[in-house]
Simulated assay, not measured.
Amino acid sequence: MNKKAIIQLLGLTQRAGQLVTGENLVLKAIRNQSAQFVFIANDASQPTIKKFTDKCKYYQVDNSIVLSRQEISNAIGQSRSVAAIIQSGFAKKFKALTEKIN
């Protein structure tokens, strides 16, 4: 149930224009601290997962590894393994939903 809610909200965030996708753009958003929450695909490569979790930890950005690449891609309509939410309201909702899963 919660995973479905996360996927639906991710699609809504994309349509609202509050989502940054793609590795380079997400890294840039984390570095300039516009990223509020980051989704990393749980089936991404280990170096990718490590790179993004380390960056998020360093810049104190909440992140989650509960969705697969397929789930992220289906939600936003693009093939992506990372996505960053740049609006704080959406980020708070994602944080609450992902904490329920973990």
Rank of each mutant, 00 (worst) to 15 (best):
A29L: 04
R80N: 12
K92H: 06
K51P: 11
A83L: 05
P47C: 14
N24S: 06
N42I: 14
S81M: 14
S88F: 05
Q36D: 01
L19T: 08
T13Q: 00
D62Q: 03
R15Y: 02
I85L: 02
Q60S: 07
G17L: 09
P47R: 15
L27H: 10
A91R: 00
K95P: 04
I72M: 12
I72P: 11
A84E: 04
T53E: 10
A41P: 13
E71P: 11
K3Q: 13
Q18S: 08
I72K: 09
S34L: 06
I49W: 15
S73C: 11
E23F: 13
T98W: 09
N63Q: 05
Q33G: 02
C56A: 02
F37T: 04
S79H: 13
D43K: 15
L25D: 06
I6V: 13
V66I: 15
I7S: 05
L27T: 10
I72W: 10
Q46H: 15
K51A: 15
L19V: 05
C56Y: 05
G11R: 02
I65V: 15
L10K: 03
V61T: 03
S79G: 13
E99Q: 14
I7W: 05
A44S: 15
I65S: 12
V26G: 04
A29I: 05
I30K: 03
Q87R: 11
L12S: 01
I86Q: 06
I76P: 08
S88A: 09
G22R: 10
A16V: 04
A84S: 07
L25I: 02
I85V: 13
Q70R: 15
R69V: 11
Y59H: 07
K93G: 00
A84Y: 06
G77V: 10
S64H: 07
K92Y: 08
G11D: 00
K95A: 09
E23Y: 13
Q8G: 00
G11Y: 06
N2E: 14
L10I: 10
R80F: 07
K93P: 00
P47G: 14
I86E: 03
D54S: 14
A5Y: 12
I7H: 01
D54Q: 14
A44T: 13
A44W: 14
F90C: 02
I76Q: 01
I72R: 08
Q8M: 02
S88H: 08
F90T: 02
A84K: 06
A41I: 09
I7Y: 08
F37R: 00
Q33A: 06
A16N: 12
Y59T: 00
S81H: 14
F39W: 05
K51D: 12
L12C: 00
V20Y: 06
R15D: 01
S79I: 15
I65H: 15
S79Q: 13
K50F: 15
T53P: 09
T48W: 12
V61L: 01
